[in-house]
Amino acid sequence: MGFDSSEPEQRRRLQAALTAAQVSTGDLWLYYFGIGGSVGEYEVEAYLQGLLSLPELQRDLLAMAANELFNDHAGPRAPYADELGSEDPPRSEEP
């Protein structure tokens, strides 16, 4: 089973935004759950590790949760799927 072409990029930038804002996976998940997210914390953790593929809607909800969580932060935003060019080739893993 493969990833959507923009998925690794979206995940990587979500991860970067979380790290910059020092938001834990648990806090992200609770907020994501609070805005209607339907995937469990365990799966979200696996997604962030690049071990699990999530549907676009759930990925976007995670991005939205992150962006709403660090609304007053100057750090990087988490991108939505439609903001990422789907033309870039699917990347395997960053070092």
Partner: peptide, 16 residues
Amino acid sequence: GLQSALFSRDLINRAC
């Protein structure tokens, strides 16, 4: 945290 998560989830689901 849980209370506010449940409240907003409920609100959003009703809007949906």
